[in-house]
Write a protein that binds this DNA or RNA. Sequence first.
DNA 1: AAAGTTTACTTGCACTTTGCAACCTACCCC
DNA 2: GGGGTAGGTTGCAAAGTGCAAGTAAACTTT
Lengths: 147, 147
Amino acid sequence: MPGKSGRRSGCPVSVSLELFGDRWSLLIVRDMMVRGFRTFGEFRESGEGIATNILADRLRKLQHAGIVVAEVEETDARRLNYRLTEKGIDLAPVLLEMLIWAARHEETSAPCALIEQIEKNREGFLAEVRRRWKERDPAPIMPRFTQ
Amino acid sequence: MPGKSGRRSGCPVSVSLELFGDRWSLLIVRDMMVRGFRTFGEFRESGEGIATNILADRLRKLQHAGIVVAEVEETDARRLNYRLTEKGIDLAPVLLEMLIWAARHEETSAPCALIEQIEKNREGFLAEVRRRWKERDPAPIMPRFTQ
DNA sequence: AAAGTTTACTTGCACTTTGCAACCTACCCC
DNA sequence: GGGGTAGGTTGCAAAGTGCAAGTAAACTTT
């Protein structure tokens, strides 16, 4: 949905930050992308403890931005399946660089071996993320990093 | 400054978002990185219209996170020069991917030719950003994208 | 040296966003 | 049709944000 008025500026970085520059949006994208989460309940129990009103708000905004789509599950009409769009899966490089940066400069629970492996093979990792998305493969590609 | 308690989780993405997951922090980093801005006044008039209390707060937090350092200018003691640390300049790939994503999926003021050129030569662009930082070259590497 | 300007803030206040708990309403299963 | 589950909404207190104004120190001009 381009052509929005009311933008702070036309700088792409600024535009990005207006869409997902907060503490939660990219975590939801991460869960969809690498952990295969699809439902409200999965995101809610994702480990970081997001409040349900914030979660509902972010899912709404991500849908409005065209990053996520929701579809009703055919076996259970209560259940919504949230899924990344192509625009959403294209955020993979952003998340990957954030992961590499934090693993290098902050103390995280990500095992060094895993990070090293990903860093050496960025393109392969991104290709695998994209393949899983395309084939709707719900298997998580990365563990949960519980602290 | 690793070893902080009170983290939501040990996931590197979550850790990153706790440090710079807001609408302003990365814009300040962008201004330092690609426009050569150094002083409070330059950030204030950067185009997006940040409030001065927020700017002061973000500069403080970025310093506390070790992403930015401040040093008094020798010619004018009023003037503080804010500068990225190595940890800060290492955010370049994150910003670059955000720039590419938004240029591809949103309507921005970035000229297509420029984006295409950068996308084809990511490593060269990152090397140039890093060179300018290392040599304290204040020449902006990218224009201001005024809308 | 008095007056004005610039720089980097701080303060006050209205407004918005967030976090937490509780509640609500379909929908499924038995 | 009763109980549990999924995906929310609502209310309220606390925190964060945006804007205008003010401040203190360091220069600059007269």
